[in-house]
């Protein structure tokens, strides 16, 4: 992706055009991933917003020799994982007894407008344990290798492969269950 290399280079030189182009090019991919990982529109929007803001501030320090899209997707996955941990902690501590409400309605302030299909799949994927959900989505939708996912999650490749296998099995039983209904 020669275009991405030029964009990164221009961005590192301080080009606002390059930042606009990167934003326009990848914002939907990032929102899609965040939506399916968090199953919560406002969390997803926060995650992508934060990823872009820290990216915008990182021109001087950014050390990126690989794929820009994958880098941004990994940033989203990392933030979604942290957010998920924080949400779980809040729920275990009893600080947030109210169930997280999935924002479905479209408000003027809402950034992301999800299709029915995306909502349906977010609801399906949320039934998978987080690690499995992330692995399946990053591998199948973001095209990441198990090795790369393992690096990003800080676990072994075998663990990632296991999560993937279990994730697919669980997904299969959910989908088969849907058909039986």
């Amino acid at each position: 992706m020669l275009e991405d290399k030029v964009l990164i280079w221009k961005f590192k030189c301080g080009s606002s055009d390059a930042l606009c182009r990167i934003y326009e090019k990848y914002r939907k991919d990032l929102l899609r991933l965040a939506a399916i990982l968090s199953n919560n529109s406002s969390d997803a929007e926060d995650i992508v917003h934060d990823v872009f803001v820290s990216f915008a501030q990182s021109a001087e320090t950014l050390k990126l020799s690989g794929n820009l899209k994958r880098f941004l997707l990994t940033c989203v996955a990392n933030r979604a994982r942290n957010k998920n941990r924080a949400n779980q902690r809040r729920q275990t501590d009893g600080l947030d007894e109210a169930k997280s409400v999935i924002s479905q309605s479209k408000s003027p302030e809402q950034w992301m407008i999800q299709s029915e299909e995306l909502r349906r799949w977010s609801d399906i994927m949320v039934q998978l344990p987080y690690g499995q959900r992330e692995t399946v989505i990053l591998h199948l939708r973001a095209g990441m290798k198990f090795r790369q996912i393992a690096q990003s999650q800080g676990v072994s490749v075998n663990t990632v492969k296991g999560r993937y296998r279990y994730g697919l099995n669980k997904l299969r039983s959910i989908l088969d269950g849907e058909v039986e209904k």
Binding site: I36, Q57, W111, L118
Partner: peptide
């Protein structure tokens, strides 16, 4: 899962707001 057509759109006004914020962040940095 690979072939899912997960359409997504964004609110143009919000897009502009986020983009301005990003450009500000970039300028400050």
């Amino acid at each position: 899962v690979k072939n899912l057509n997960l359409d997504i759109d964004t609110n143009p006004q919000k897009d502009q707001t986020v983009l301005s914020e990003l450009l500000d962040a970039q300028k400050r940095s």
